[in-house]
Amino acid sequence: MRDTVYVLVFDGFADWQAALALCEVRRPGEWQVCTLGFSRAPVISMGGLTVQPDATLAELAMDRAVMLVVPGGHLWLRGEGAAAVERLREAHAAGATVAGIDSGVVPLARAGLLDGVRHTGNWAGQLSAVPDYAGEDQYDAEVLAANDAGVITASHLGSVEFAREVIRTLDLYSPTDREDWFRLFKHARLPAWCAGASPVEVAA
């Protein structure tokens, strides 16, 4: 049964980038969120939070994985994290959605998962520097997030858009409620049904 959203954590991971998406994943109570590390050793996020991974990459259960989320971090820009690259390729082949934001898109490119799908990122040149990347024609510079064929990608400026694509992929809420959610968190525009309330009250 696919019931788990895995999120990769490592020293220096950008903790805020997937936080909004993960809060919405957990809200309905139907999905599990599991943190993965390169080992079980605690890691410290870019924001200074100490996180104890629930499991290692090697322990990722392919039959339970509905999604594997990869936040940004300097690790990817140093060309490290080969074990995650291989696991991303395996997870996607097994039917899980892979989702990268900011430089977390780089390991998706290294895994060859962007070559045939519409995708985005921080800027095209960041991905063009990845050896064997062949997705230039599929890069969309006009959006902050893209979702195609089981691959979600987002710019470092697109955490709300990233969350919207995660929500859509997991079919959380109705289409109308998803758009209301996006307008609320992106533009602080209240849905029609909450006239008289404040954005803070609605978000809570």
Rank of each mutant, 00 (worst) to 15 (best):
M1S: 13
M1W: 06
V7H: 09
D11M: 12
G12T: 09
F13T: 03
W16I: 07
W16T: 08
Q17A: 12
L20Q: 14
C23Q: 14
V25W: 01
R26P: 03
R26A: 15
G29W: 13
Q32I: 01
C34R: 14
C34F: 02
G37N: 07
G37Q: 10
F38H: 10
S39P: 06
R40V: 02
V43Y: 02
I44W: 00
S45Q: 06
M46N: 07
G48K: 07
P53H: 11
L57F: 06
L57C: 03
L57A: 05
A58W: 01
E59Y: 07
R64T: 03
A65F: 07
V66G: 11
M67L: 08
M67H: 01
L68N: 00
V69Y: 00
V70K: 05
H74M: 11
H74K: 10
H74V: 02
L75K: 10
L75I: 05
G79E: 08
E80D: 15
G81P: 05
A84G: 11
R87E: 12
L88K: 11
L88A: 14
E90K: 03
A91G: 03
A91K: 00
H92Q: 05
H92D: 01
H92Y: 04
A93I: 00
G95W: 04
V98R: 04
G100R: 06
I101E: 10
G104I: 04
V105C: 14
V105G: 03
P107A: 07
R110P: 08
G112R: 08
L113W: 03
G116M: 04
R118N: 13
T120Q: 08
L127R: 10
V130W: 03
P131K: 04
Y133K: 05
G135W: 09
D137R: 14
Y139K: 04
D140R: 14
E142L: 13
L144T: 07
L144R: 14
A145T: 11
A146I: 12
A149G: 13
G150M: 11
F162H: 00
A163T: 01
A163L: 05
V166K: 01
V166I: 13
I167W: 07
L170S: 03
L170Y: 03
D171M: 07
D171L: 06
S174W: 09
P175V: 00
P175S: 07
D177W: 14
D180P: 03
F182T: 01
K186N: 13
K186I: 02
L190Q: 05
L190A: 10
P191Q: 10
A192K: 11
A195R: 11
A195P: 04
G196I: 09
A197C: 15
P199S: 04
V200F: 15
V200Y: 12
E201G: 00
V202L: 09
A204C: 14
